[in-house]
Amino acid sequence: MSVAVRGLTRRFGPTAALRDIALETRPGEFVALLGPSGSGKTTLLRILAGLDFADSGTVEIEGQDMSAVPARARRLGFVFQNYALFRHMSVFENVAFGLRVRPRAARPGEAEIGRRVRALLERMQIGALERRMPEQISGGQRQRVALARALAIEPRLLLLDEPFGALDAEVRKGLRRWLRDLHTEMGLTSLFVTHDQEEALELADRVAVMEAGRLVQIDTPERLVEAPATAFVAGFLGHAARLPGRLAEGALHFGGVPLPPLPRAALRAAPAQDGPVLAFIRAHEWAVAPAPEGEANATLRSQRPAGGHAHVELDLAGHVIEAEAPLGLLRVGQPCRLVPQTARAFAA
């Protein structure tokens, strides 16, 4: 099951929700659409499902152009953010809906419908709920019903809009892993929308990062973290300090902050041209040590243990910097010396 999107643009009045989107997925892939709210990810998902239409560009599914295919003929599973369960139908009837509305010739018999629905409910671990109404079950259970309903039509592609958005943190963690397993076991191709980077990085084979209607980078989680393509991706993924600087004479100079320059060779990414840049430095990319008054450039604001080390927050000339330090090395209020080991620089 493959999807190919080319040159997709969608405008709502004067604002462009999607600009020239290109995206290809491979069969069996689990792809996340990640971005802040308003970046266009839900619009893209809705266009794939046929619930919205692009102003220009094409959507192909399994090589077939979708522009003339209405939503009901696309056979895609769509899980809505708030599930959109049919309130007046039992769990069983919700899941059976897609089978019951098939044309008579393709419609399975009553016994077959029952068998398939029950099998799906079992698989979703909600077999006992089939007679309940949507209002009578929990949020996590509704999520599973919505998923079962979408899967009942044996979709070519599963689309999920913020699948965990309406759930509390505990339920969310458990469902995440379960969904990943389900995807693998059932051999699905899935696309899901999220604004939670942790969720995207943990679940997806590849993550497409969206910013203001553009798809800025699509890559594996590892590549995204290691080699962000733009300042936006670097800032959005991983908790990095963001400092203004300048590339000149073979090194990165931090203008307003009391940090030593970093030679180009130490940088993980940098534009070829010299000039003003934005530098991103992650917590583990700092070296911190206590220092006497004259050599110190930062003060420790707070610390808390995290695993085998301490997670510390320092005040660096007004910037709050997060870093890692050995446990018990530092005291709150202590002057320290903070030195970046590496950085990623993007032209500003």
């Binding site: 046929g50 619930l51 919205d52 239409f53 692009a54 102003d55 522009s67 209405p70 939503a71």
Partner: peptide, 8 residues
């Protein structure tokens, strides 16, 4: 004019 279309 695909914009004029509506899924409903």
């Amino acid at each position: 004019t695909p914009r004029r279309r509506d899924p409903l």
